[in-house]
Structure formats: C-alpha cells, structure tokens
Design a binder for these strands. Structure first.
Length: 482
DNA sequence: AAAAAAC
C-alpha cells in the first residue's frame, strides 16, 4: 500500500488543496480509511488521537460528492448531501474550517451550525444551499424544526467522536436527527475510543460496515509520556507549578471534572502568576472561542478546561496535558491526553492522583492496557505564593463578591471581569481567603520570591483520612509519605 | 461523583 496523497487520484481540485496544505504522506488511518470511504461503504474507524481522522473521512467524502452526482438533484437545487455531527461546538467549528479548506477549489459549499450563536446567519447560509453541513445535535434539530435544513437527501452521515455521540447523553437527539435522513445512505463512525458496548450499539446503525482499526482501540499515542503523581487536592497546584518549571513547559491543558472547579482553578493559577484562561460549558460561546483563541495565539499559557475540550481539538505543539482531576471515564483520559503529542510530536501527560482516585486509575490502567505507576513528586518546602493581583495585597483591599442575586455561580467573582490576562509577579501575599471560592490559602510572610527549585527539608505531608482502602499502591503511597 | 448538547 502506498502512503502518498498524490497516488490517490483525488480530483485535481482536492489534490491542489491538499498539496497547498503541505500534506504529502498519509497517516495509517488515512491510508486505510480513504480507499474504503471512496467505495461508499459504511465504516467504523478507530485510530489513535492526533492521527488525522478528519482528513481520513472528509477527503474521500468530498471526492464522492464531486464524482457521484445525486441523480434526483437538479442543478438548481442544493440539498444537504453530507452531514457531519460532532459532540462539541468548538469541534464542529474546527472540522468545518478544515472541510472548507479541503473544498476550497471545488464548487461544493459547506456550513457549520452550533448553539450559542445567533440562528440568523446560520439560517441564511442554509437557505442559500450547502452540500456539506457540519453541526452539533441540538442546534441542528432547531434548524430542522424551523425548516431551515432539509435532510431528506443526505447521502453521507459522519459521526465524529462516534462513541460520545452514541452515549446516553446524546443518543436521543442523535436518533431524532437520523430519523430525518434517508435509510439508504452511507454512515461513517470515527473515534479513538470504542467500548465493546458502544461498538455493539454502533453496529446497529451501520450496514455491512468495514471496520478499520489502525491501532488497538483505546490505545494512547506512544509519543506521550504519561506520569501519575500522588497529590492531595491542596498540593495539586504546587505539583503543576513544579512540573512546569522543572520541565520548562510553556503551555498546557489542565483538565478538571467540573465547571465550578474549572473557574476556581483558573482564578487560583492566575493569581499565582500564570497566564490562564478557563473553558467550560457555562461560559458564553464568545468567551469559549476567545479562550481557545488566546491559547492558540500564546496569549495564555494554561487552558483550564472541562471535558468540553477533551476531544478532537487540534492545537499544534501543545507540550503538556495535566489531569488536575482524574477523569470519571477512562475513555476521557485517552482523549484528554490526546491533546498533546499530536501528529508525531512528543508530549507529556501528568495526572494528579488523590487517594480517592484509586479506582479510576485502575480503570485507566485496564482500558489502555498499560502498567501504570503512581509516583510521589518531591515538593519544595516553599508553598505556592499567590500574586496579590490588581486589588492589592490584603484581602480586605479586594472587592467583595456580591451577594447572590440569581446569577450563575461562575459569575460571582469580580476578578472574572478582568479584560485581559495579566502576568502577576510573585509577591508575598497574606492568607487569601475568599469565602465563596477558596479554602484558606496559607502563604508565607516573606520578602523572598519563592523558588520552585527543590530545597530545604522534605515537605510535611498531611495525613489522609482513615477510611481510604489501602488495597492499592496509590493509597499506600499516601500512607508511607507521612 | 460530571460534562456535553437548544432556546
């Protein structure tokens, strides 16, 4: 099998776009999936994160649209012929942009619709007619109900991040959407992870599918160095500071399990002098896109995010991913760490493990079929010192959070009103106490800027609660640390 | 134990 795009006999218009984008050789998933998709068969495709799945389905899809005119379509009408569904808005946006680039020199038009944005511009585009529609489920249903999108001539449907699209949270919407599509069509499912149950479920949506697995499903990229560090919750930020400094890491995704925790952690890290943006589903779409863009542009170094950012986002050269919280689903672990080490680059994934996470780490170990070791990172004596921020050093100088007035909890903290990220200096700060958001934060009263270099005696670890089952080595680590 | 996706 050859692995060069030039041997694919793609339409000249597609080949030109591909060449312009600098693509020469295909990745394994592309080399295997493209010829199959070109035949028009249903496909279930599994490949590691960051290996070019989007191109693997969109190029042959566009080729099919170019070569095989739908006979029931008069040139005057432009029904949606291909539908691509994704689980998050940012991902829909990204995939749509990619498809636009591939289709640049063709007559094929594409559009993207997702929530959080004005319906009107999307409606206008749909009315003009598009052959390829990229969408998130909820907003697509809105457009279907408003009769803006007519899907009864769809020939191809792609479920990207298919296992997520088929999980319980999305399934009802997905089934409704599929009910509007012709039974006679090609269905393509792609993901880096497929659990056996989802695989079975997926099979019921496919007809004589060709299964393509270029790696063992759920496999993590070999280019990502995976580390698990034992850390109590109150030590986790210090571990992050230390890893960033020791490794000289400039940028990282930091994943947390909740939206509330996301905002809190972002504020804490920002106060500690790191340029940080937060990305989660309670932010406005404008804020979400801005946070992502600021990270891409290097205007912020840390992107603190929920699993909204776990899948598919393709940002070049992200050197590291932290799991501040161990993800609830082992599959999400695979996707999260897939934000680094993309396209053959190297990456670091650091997961912070507290004693209660034992079971979750075990789940990950089982899923990725790798022996994991939870290590203890030697922390420095000097705890992290929060920068004083623009409101001065004493807590009483800072504006108080306003009392609850029915606003979202995320909006409590006036520091969120900061327009631009600021680089706070390391200044000695008093105990900063925010009754709404923070545990009391013990900071040293010193004029010396804290050093992150290892120094001084071993840190004193706080003892853990006694009801942790010491059955696994994780718990053992905490016990012996005392 | 949560998040995501519509207004």
């Amino acid at each position: 099998m050859t692995d060069s795009f030039s041997n694919l006999s793609l339409a000249p218009t597609l080949a030109r776009a591909v060449a312009e984008m600098g693509y020469e050789s295909m990745t394994p998933i592309q080399a295997q999936a493209i010829p199959v998709v070109l035949t028009g068969q249903d496909v279930m495709g599994a490949a590691q994160t960051g290996t070019g799945k989007t191109a693997a389905f969109s190029l042959p899809l566009l080729q099919r649209l170019l070569k095989h005119e739908n006979p029931s379509t008069s040139p005057a009408r432009h029904p949606v012929r291909a539908l691509v569904l994704l689980p998050t808005r940012e991902l829909a946006d990204q995939v749509a942009q990619q498809i636009k680039m591939y289709a640049k020199y063709t007559q094929l038009r594409s559009a993207v619709v997702f929530g959080g944005m004005d319906m009107k511009p999307q409606t206008l585009e749909l009315k003009k007619g598009v052959e390829v529609l990229v969408a998130t489920p909820g907003r697509l249903l809105d457009h279907i109900e408003a009769k803006n999108a007519v899907l009864n001539q769809v020939e191809y449907v792609v479920l990207d991040e298919a296992d997520r699209m088929l999980d319980i949270g999305f399934l009802p919407d997905l089934q409704r959407i599929l009910s509007f599509l012709p039974k006679q069509r090609t269905t393509l499912l792609f993901s880096a992870t497929f659990s056996p149950e989802i695989k079975r479920l997926a099979g019921s949506y496919l007809q004589n599918p060709v299964t393509i697995e270029v790696a063992r499903p759920n496999e993590t990229a070999s280019t990502v160095e995976q580390r698990f560090y034992a850390a109590q919750d109150e030590d986790k930020r210090r571990v992050i500071h230390k890893v960033l400094t020791d490794r000289g890491i400039k940028q990282a995704f930091i994943f947390v399990n909740s939206k509330l925790g996301c905002g809190r952690l972002a504020r804490s890290l920002e106060r500690e002098g790191l340029r940080t943006a937060a990305l989660h589903g309670d932010k406005s779409q404008d804020e979400r896109l801005k946070a992502l863009e600021a990270f891409k542009q290097g205007e912020v170094d840390l992107l603190v995010c929920t699993d909204v950012a776990a899948r598919g986002l393709d940002i070049k050269d992200v050197p590291a991913v932290f799991n501040f919280d161990v993800p609830f689903n082992a599959e999400d672990y695979v996707h999260r760490i897939g934000r680094t080490g993309r396209a053959g680059a190297s990456g670091l994934a650091v997961t912070l493990v507290s004693p209660s996470d034992t079971r979750l780490v075990g789940d990950i170990e089982k899923l990725i079929k790798k022996q994991l070791e939870v290590e203890t990172l030697q922390l420095d004596t000097q705890p992290a010192v929060p920068s004083a921020g623009k409101w001065g050093e004493r807590p009483e100088d800072r504006p108080r959070a306003r009392p609850y007035e029915g606003r979202r909890r995320e909006e409590f903290d006036p520091r969120d009103a900061l327009e631009s990220p600021r680089r706070g200096g390391f200044r000695p700060a008093p105990i900063s106490r925010d009754p709404f958001f923070e545990k009391p934060y013990e900071a040293p009263q010193t004029d010396v800027a804290p050093s992150w270099e290892p120094s001084g005696p071993k840190p004193v670890r706080s003892s853990i609660s006694a009801n942790i089952k010491p059955k696994r080595k994780v718990a053992a680590l905490f016990k012996s640390g005392d």
